[in-house]
Design a protein around this nucleic acid. Structure first.
Lengths: 333, 333
DNA sequence: GCCTCACATTACATCGATGTAATGGCTCAT
DNA sequence: ATGAGCCATTACATCGATGTAATGTGAGGC
C-alpha cells in the first residue's frame, strides 16, 4: 500500500498537518522538524495523492486542451507547445479531440465542470454554438483561433490581415490570376471566411477584379481533401498563376497534385500556405507561408487562463499573435 | 456553488447513497425513486466531482500517454489514435512529453503514482534505464516501440523484419548501393539498432557486402537533422543508389535536400521511409515506406493496459503489430 | 522567578462520493 | 394474523490532504 501523510507523520514523529506544512511551505516549519519530515518522506517514497488534494483544494493542477484533430500537423504543433509551456508552469494537460463532432465540445465543458480540470483551452470547430455554454459557472476557458465569440478570452492570429499580406506578396510577384484553396463551401469556418475576406481586400488594393472561378472550395483542411479538390478543379479549369492555400497541410496536398500533373512550382504556378508547420520548410519546393510563433500562442493562452483563474469576473481579453509572411521557393526561385 | 450528491438527495427526498446508487447502477434502485433522483440531478445540473470519486474509488478514469515529442507527425498520429480509442472506452488521456530529457520519464512515473492516473502508455527514449523503475508498486505501464525491456507489457512493430523487407524491396529494384539514414551514432536508440540489423540481414540475402560508407548516422529523427546529415554526407560522398531513411520525417528532409541539389527521385536515387505518416503519401514524390495501423497500436496498448489493471501479477505480454512495405513513387516511377 | 507574546505544532473537521452494515417496509406462506 | 425472508434505503465511516482554531513550548522582559 502506498504511504500517506499519516504514515510519514508517524515515522517522523509529528502530526499529519506538519507534514502537509512541510510540503506546501506556506505555514513555517522549524528546520529540524522539516528535516525529519523530509527524511521520512524519502524513506517511505511518499507521493501525495492528487485526488485527495484536488478534493480538498478544489484544484487539480490539470488543464484540458481541446483540438479538432490531434493528428494534423498544425494541431500537433499547438499541442506540443501547450504541453511544453504548461509543464514548465507545473500544469498537466489533458487532451481531448472534438473531431468533427460538435457534441464533444459540450461534453468537454461538462467534464471540465467535474473538477478534474481547472481550465480549458479550446480550439473550436463549431463557433457560435459553443458560445451558449460558456458562462460563469464553468471553469476558465480560453479559445484559440478565429472565433466569433465574445464571451471568453481568446488568442488568435489576425487572419484577415495575414491573408491580405500573403495575397499582396503573391501579387507583388506579378501574378494576377490568384486562386484560393480552402474557401468555405456553405457556412464555412470563421477562419475560411476571414481569410477569404483578406484575400478580397488585397485584390482590391492590387486592382484585380474578383473572379469567382478562382475560388476553390474545400471544406476539410487536410492534404487529402485539398488534393481531391484541386484535382477536380484542374479537370475543368486552367491552372491559375498562383494558389493560396488556407493551410500548409492543404498546400502540401496541392503540391503533390501539381507535381503529378507535371506542373512546375513556382514557374507554372506559385503556391503559398498558412501556419508554417514544421514540414513546410521541407516541402518540395519549400513552402511560402504565414508564420507565427506557436509557442507564443501557447504561452499567451496559458497566461490568459491562469489570470482568469485569479479573476473570474474581469473583462474578456483578446490577444493577437504577430505573424509574418515567409517567402520560400514555392513562390520565387 | 456546484451541486453535490447531498443537494440532489435533499431535492429528491432520498439519502445521498441512493443518489450514488442511481449513478453507478450496481445496487438496484426502484423505478420511481430512480426517476425522482434523475429529475433532481437534471434540475440541479449535477456533475459528479471526479476528485472525490477518484479519492474514494482509487481510480481516476485518466491514463497518461508519454511521447518524446508531440510535435512530430509520428507522435501526433499515435497520440491521435490513443486519444480516440481511449475516448471510446471512456478514458481521458493526459499527455506528457519526455522530450530529450530522460529525467522526465522518471518524473512521470512518480506522477503516475500520485493517483491521478490509472495507467501509463510510454514511448520511451531512454531504454533500459527506465527499466529500473518499472516495478509492482507502479500503476500499469505499457511500452510502445522497440524497447529492450522485459518488465512491462509492450506493443511494437518488428523493426528488424520490416527494415529487412524494405531493404529487400529496394534491392529488388536492382539497386545495390543502398544507404541508410538514421543509424545510431554512439549508443543509439533501440529502433536504430534493430533497423540497422534488419538492413544488414537483407544485404546478406542480397549478396551485397556491408559498406560502412553507406551508413549515415543521424541522432535526431527529424527532417531538420536528416537534412543536415544528408547535406554533409553528400559533400564528401557520391550519391547512393537508394536511401532508406529510418523514419518518414527524415525521408521528407532528405527529399528536400535531394531536390535542392537537382537529384531526381527515384531516377538518380530511390528513397524510402518508415512509419507511413499522413504526409508520406503527399511527399514529392510520394514516399515508399513501412506502413502499419496506428489505431491498432493504440487499441492494443489500451487493451494491454486495461487487462493489466485487472491482473497486476500476470505474465508480461508483447504484441507485435503487422506491417507492410508500401511502394510509392519514391522508389519506382 | 513569573508573565507575556510569538511561533511551531496539534486535534478536529472538512472536501464529495461510496462501501458497509444496519434498518425499514413489504410480500408471501402458514 | 404473524413470522420469515427479501429488497430498497439509510446512517455512518472512509478515502488522503489541508484549513481552522486551539494547544503547547520557548524565549525575553520586568
Amino acid at each position: 500500500m502506498r504511504a500517506t501523510v499519516k504514515d510519514v507523520a508517524r515515522l517522523a514523529g509529528v502530526s499529519p498537518k506538519t507534514v502537509s506544512n512541510v510540503m506546501n511551505g506556506i505555514v513555517p516549519v522549524s528546520g529540524p522538524t522539516k528535516l525529519k519530515v523530509e527524511q521520512a518522506m524519502a524513506e517511505l517514497d511518499y507521493v501525495p495523492n492528487l485526488s485527495a488534494r484536488g478534493l480538498r483544494n478544489g484544484r487539480s493542477g490539470v488543464i484540458a486542451l481541446a483540438l479538432p484533430d490531434l493528428g494534423t500537423p498544425y494541431s500537433a504543433e499547438i499541442a506540443h507547445s501547450v504541453v511544453e509551456v504548461a509543464h514548465e508552469q507545473g500544469w498537466s494537460v489533458q487532451i481531448e479531440e472534438t473531431g468533427s463532432d460538435p457534441a464533444r465540445e459540450y461534453e468537454l465543458m461538462s467534464r471540465a465542470r467535474s473538477n478534474l480540470i481547472d481550465g480549458l483551452i479550446l480550439n473550436p470547430v463549431v463557433l457560435d454554438e459553443s458560445a451558449v455554454k460558456v458562462g460563469v459557472t464553468l471553469p476558465p476557458v480560453v479559445l484559440l483561433g478565429e472565433v466569433s465569440q465574445k464571451l471568453a478570452d481568446r488568442v488568435w492570429v489576425d487572419s484577415v490581415a495575414a491573408a491580405r499580406d500573403m495575397t499582396l506578396a503573391l501579387g507583388r510577384t506579378g501574378r494576377r490570376r490568384i486562386a484560393i484553396l480552402g474557401a468555405a463551401g456553405g457556412r464555412g469556418s470563421a477562419a475560411a471566411i476571414l481569410r477569404t475576406r483578406g484575400y478580397q481586400a488585397a485584390l482590391e488594393e492590387l486592382g484585380i477584379a474578383w473572379d469567382e472561378s478562382l475560388i476553390i472550395p474545400c471544406e476539410k483542411w487536410s492534404p487529402d481533401a485539398a488534393a481531391r479538390a484541386l484535382t477536380a478543379y484542374l479537370e475543368v479549369r486552367p491552372v491559375p498563376e498562383a494558389l493560396f492555400c488556407f493551410t500548409d497541410s492543404m498546400a502540401i496536398g496541392a503540391l503533390s497534385v501539381l507535381w503529378k500533373r507535371g506542373l512546375r512550382v513556382p514557374d507554372d504556378v506559385a503556391v503559398a500556405g498558412f501556419d508554417d508547420i514544421a514540414d513546410a520548410r521541407y516541402a518540395v519546393p519549400s513552402l511560402t507561408t504565414v508564420s507565427f510563433d506557436k509557442r507564443r500562442v501557447a504561452s499567451e493562452a496559458l497566461r490568459l487562463l491562469t489570470e482568469r483563474m485569479q479573476d473570474r469576473e474581469g473583462p474578456q481579453r483578446v490577444v493577437a499573435i504577430d505573424y509574418e509572411v515567409v517567402e520560400r521557393e514555392s513562390t520565387s526561385s
